[in-house]
């Protein structure tokens, strides 16, 4: 297993640990707000208030509501704006790997799939790839269309992500079944199936994260072509420049999780702010 390779373990897990801590921290603050009245971060990922003043809102949920015809109050619009700008300018699709509580679930499925390949024995990927990654983009569009037709935020009404993040704070109800569904789907049917192929929220961040500053860069010269990075990457297609040429990963689909950087023995990858030069030289 790649994680057991040489080097201080902490360094090899630094992003993973940081992500888990952030995911956990956000969840704890939300739970604390509901259960004990903490005033640090109230609400949930759909919309929240930091320190009683700064609003955040899920921009995709906001878009759905706008599509549904809801003339939202300024607080929500402001919150969505702030959130969208943060990701668009800075973090890219970072939400998916650093904040979203579904991420540990799908990561676990992926890990188990890699560690015990027999999980996936019966599910050899169909060569015709029935589930293109573009499906999630379609779903994103569909979510907006359905919101308009049904007059409510259509994805929010069924979203396992929403069920999980709300459930953690306000009680899961039957939500565990949806989470289990995602987990089993990812484990048995389609590697990285939910986030990589279905989730319209991921697709949304893919779109707005297209031009963010935070990027994975690759130094072709150091690369030994061991492919460890591709094995751990949930969106491995974005690493198509590895061992081909130096440059930045420019696809919005990259979640900036930094797993590739961590597992690279050769320092051929780094998570850093977009550098003009390298960005130009990226290959396709």
């Amino acid at each position: 297993m790649t994680e057991s390779a040489a080097g201080p373990r902490s360094r090899h897990l630094r992003f993973l640990v940081a992500r888990r801590l952030l995911q956990l921290g956000v969840a704890v603050l939300f739970v604390g707000a509901n259960a004990w009245g903490w005033k640090i971060l109230q609400g949930n990922l759909s919309s929240s208030v930091l320190l009683g003043t700064i609003p955040f809102a899920d921009p995709f949920a906001t878009l759905q509501l706008l599509a549904a015809g809801g003339m939202l109050a300024t607080n929500a619009l402001l919150g969505a704006g702030i959130t969208a700008v943060v990701y668009a300018v800075f973090g890219g699709r970072m939400f998916c790997s650093w904040i979203c509580p579904m991420n540990p679930v799908t990561d676990l499925a992926n890990y188990l799939g890699r560690r015990f390949p027999w999980f996936r024995a019966g599910s050899r990927q169909d060569p015709r790839k029935p589930l293109a990654r573009s499906v999630r983009t379609w779903f994103m569009a569909l979510a907006l269309v359905l919101s308009a037709v049904l007059g409510t935020a259509a994805f929010e009404a069924v979203s396992p992500v929403g069920m999980l993040q709300r459930g953690l704070v306000f009680g899961m109800g039957l939500g565990w079944w949806a989470i289990a569904g995602v987990f089993l789907f990812d484990l048995f049917i389609q590697r990285n199936g939910f986030c990589g192929h279905l989730c319209p929220l991921g697709a949304f961040y893919e779109v707005i994260g297209r031009f963010s500053l935070l990027r994975v860069i690759h130094d072709h010269k150091k690369c030994t072509s061991c492919w460890d990075c591709l094995r751990v990457c949930p969106e491995s297609q974005v690493l198509n420049l590895v061992s081909k040429g130096s440059g930045s990963v420019l696809s919005g689909a990259c979640t900036n999780c930094g797993r590739c950087v961590e597992v690279c023995h050769d320092d051929a990858l780094a998570l850093t702010f977009r550098q003009q030069g390298i960005a130009q030289s990226s290959g396709g």
Binding site: G43, S46, D58
Partner: peptide, 8 residues
Amino acid sequence: AKCIRCGL
């Protein structure tokens, strides 16, 4: 059409 389901 307006509730964002945040629980605030």
